[in-house]
Design a protein around this nucleic acid. Structure first.
Lengths: 336, 336
DNA sequence: ATGTAAAATGTAATCGGTTACATTTAGTAT
DNA sequence: ATACTAAATGTAACCGATTACATTTTACAT
C-alpha cells in the first residue's frame, strides 16, 4: 500500500507538503501542488483514512439511534439524515435499538469513545440526567421523539396542534361523536396527539367521552381491535382520528367487516402520511409529517454543533399539513 | 482523556499487559488481570478505538450499499444485516446510492481505503470487471440483486421458480388468461419473474400472449396504469401476477375503478410479502421473500469472508413461499 | 543590492494502542 | 537443589497522517 512518504519521496518534497496538498491546497505553491498531485495520481495513492481519523480524532461519521429501521416513518427520517450527511461528507452508522434502552447506552459509549462525531436520536428512552450530561460533551440532536425538561436540540412537528387540526377537520365535516385511537401512551407524541384531540373537542363545545379514547400500539391489528370495540358501543362514533396511518387501515377494515362503509358511515383521519395512506383504498386523509425534512434538518443542526456553533442548540418545529383524501369524506357529501 | 499508559502506570504494569488484558485476557495471570481491570474501572478508562482501528487496520464496520433505504424491501434486508452485524460486534454504515452508479464507485473507494472491513451490495450496477477485481481483494456479498457471469457470493431467492409458483397458483385456480405486470425489465429479478411466468404457462399448455405482459416500475401508479390498459383489451385477463406487492395494490385499484371486484372478477398475486400486502384490503396473495433472513445470511457470509474463510464464497438460494390471502380467490369460490 | 515581511516548505514530535521479540518469573521433573 | 520449559510480563518499534514550530525561499520596497 503506497503511503504519503512514498509520494513525498518521489516528488522530492516532505510528507508535510503532501499532507498540505491534500488538506490545505491553498497553502502550497501551485507548481509544487501540481507536481505532488501528479505523483499521487501516478502512484494511485489513497490516504489512509484510519490514520487520519486517529490523528485528528474525528471520524466524519455520525450515529443514528433508531428504534427500528423497518418502520417506514423512521426509515424516511433516516433517508433525510443520510442525504444531508452525504452532502457534507459524513457517513451514517445505523444504531438499531429494537426499543431496548440498554442499546441506547451502548451506543452512547461509541460516542464517548469518539467512534462518531455526533449522534442523532430517533428515540430517547435513556435517563434524562445521563442524556443532559452527554449533550454537554458531544453533539446530539433528537428528532421524531422529544423530551420535556431538558434543553436538547430537537426537530419535531407540533403534535398537539396536529391532533387538533385532524380533529377539527372531522368536526368541520359535521361530526360530533369522534373517537381517537391513540398510540402507546407512554410516548409523548401519543400524549400530545391526544391532547390536541381533546383541545379541539373542548374548543368546539363537544364533550370528551373517555369511552371513545382507546389506546393502540400503532399496529394495524390494534387499530382493528380497538375499532371493533368502539363499534360495539351503544352509541358508536361516526368518525375516528387515528394516531397513525397503519392503525387507520385497521380501523377501516374493522368498519368494513362490521358492514359499514368508509367514509359514508365512518370518517377516518390518520397520521404520518406514509406511502400506505396514499395507496390504501380508500385513500387515507392524514396529517403529513415531513419525515425526510425532519431528518435533514436534524442532520443540519448536528453539523452546526459539530462545527462548534453552540448557538444552534435549538428546538425546531417543522410545519405539518393536513392531506385530504377519501377516508374522511370531505371529497364526498357532507354529513349532517 | 485517560489512556492506556495511565492505566499501566497506576497498575504498575506495562502498556502491553493492559492491552493484553483487553484483547487476550487468557494470556495474563488472573491476579494481574484483576488488578488491571480494577484500575480500568476506577479510572473509567475507555480505549481509543480509533487508535486501535488504525493500528490493526480493521474497522469492525461494514458498508451496505443500498439503492434506497425508504423502500420497504431494502429496509427489511438492512434490518437483517444490522441484526447479524450487531451480534458480532460489527457496525453498519449506510451507503445510499439513489440508484446512481457513481455512488457505487464512490463507496468502493471506502473499501479500498479500508474504511470498512467488507461490503454488502443490495444493488450492483457497476461494471462487472471492476466488481470482480474488488471481490478478489475485499470481502463482498451481493443480495437482493444478482449478476450473471461472475462468481460473486450471492444470497437470493429463486425468482424464476417463484414466478412459476405464483403463476401456477393462478392456473390451478382455473385461470387461463393470466397477465403479468413486470418490474423494470433491465433488472434480472424482473426478467426472472417473467421467465417463471412464461414457464408456468407453457408447462400447462397455455399460450403466452405478449399483450398480457406489461412492464411496470414497481410503483403503485404503474400497476394502476398498466392494469387500466389491460382492462381496455377486447379479452382482458381474469388474473394478474404482479412482480411486487405495491403494483398489486394499483392493479386492484384499477380493477375496482373499472367496476370489477377482486378476487371475484380478477385474481391477483403479488410478490415480496411486505406488510402492505397483509394490511391491504383485500389481503394480497403473494410470494414471501425472506427479506430479514436474506440480510442476516448475507452478513453471515460476509463475516466468513472477513475471517478468511474463502470456501464460503458461494451462492445461496433461500426458500420462498406462497402466502395465500384473499386477492387470488383461493379462499373463496373456485373459478371455472 | 539590501532588508524585511510574507509565503512556502521542512523537521520532528505526536496521536494511543498493538505486537514481535526479549526478558523475567513460575512451574515441573529429576 | 538444579535444570529446563512454559507462562507471564516488559521493551520498544510501529502503524501513517497531521501540525506546531523552525527554516528557507520568494516578493517587494527602498
Amino acid at each position: 500500500m503506497v503511503k504519503m512518504s512514498d509520494v513525498a519521496d518521489k516528488a522530492n518534497v516532505s510528507k508535510a507538503t503532501v499532507s498540505r496538498v491534500l488538506r490545505n491546497p491553498e497553502t502550497v505553491k501551485k507548481a509544487t501542488r501540481d507536481k505532488v498531485l501528479a505523483i499521487i495520481e501516478q502512484l494511485n495513492y489513497q490516504p489512509n483514512i484510519l490514520a487520519r481519523h486517529f490523528r485528528r480524532s474525528e471520524t466524519n461519521t455520525i450515529l443514528v439511534v433508531i428504534p427500528n429501521i423497518m418502520n417506514t416513518v423512521f426509515s424516511h427520517i433516516l433517508g433525510g439524515i443520510e442525504h444531508e450527511a452525504g452532502m457534507h461528507g459524513y457517513r451514517v452508522i445505523l444504531a438499531n435499538t429494537n426499543r431496548q434502552v440498554e442499546k441506547e447506552y451502548e451506543y452512547l459509549d461509541h460516542l464517548r469513545q469518539r467512534q462518531a462525531d455526533g449522534m442523532i436520536l430517533l428515540s430517547a428512552r435513556m435517563d434524562k440526567g445521563v442524556l443532559s450530561e452527554v449533550m454537554k460533551q458531544y453533539p446530539v440532536v433528537l428528532t421524531a421523539d422529544y423530551l420535556e425538561g431538558i434543553p436538547i436540540p430537537t426537530v419535531t412537528i407540533d403534535n398537539v396542534s396536529s391532533g387538533r387540526t385532524a380533529t377539527e377537520h372531522l368536526i368541520k365535516l359535521g361530526h360530533s361523536r369522534i373517537a381517537h385511537i391513540t398510540g402507546p401512551l407512554h410516548l409523548l407524541v401519543s400524549q400530545d396527539r391526544l391532547k390536541g384531540y381533546r383541545q379541539a373537542l373542548l374548543q368546539n363545545d363537544l364533550d370528551v367521552d373517555n369511552i371513545l379514547i382507546q389506546e393502540g400500539d400503532f399496529s394495524h391489528e390494534s387499530g382493528y381491535n380497538q375499532m371493533t370495540k368502539l363499534l360495539a358501543l351503544e352509541h358508536p362514533p361516526t368518525a375516528v382520528f387515528s394516531a397513525n396511518d397503519e392503525m387507520a387501515t385497521g380501523i377501516i377494515k374493522a368498519a368494513k367487516d362490521h358492514g359499514l362503509s368508509v367514509p359514508e358511515d365512518l370518517a377516518v383521519v390518520g397520521f404520518d402520511n406514509v406511502k400506505l395512506s396514499a395507496i390504501y383504498d380508500p385513500g387515507i386523509t392524514t396529517i403529513a409529517q415531513p419525515m425526510f425534512e425532519m431528518g435533514s434538518k436534524a442532520m443540519e443542526l448536528l453539523l452546526q454543533q459539530i462545527n462548534g456553533d453552540e448557538t444552534s442548540k435549538k428546538q425546531y418545529v417543522l410545519q405539518n399539513e393536513l392531506v385530504i383524501r377519501e377516508s374522511c369524506g370531505a371529497n364526498q357529501k357532507k354529513l349532517g
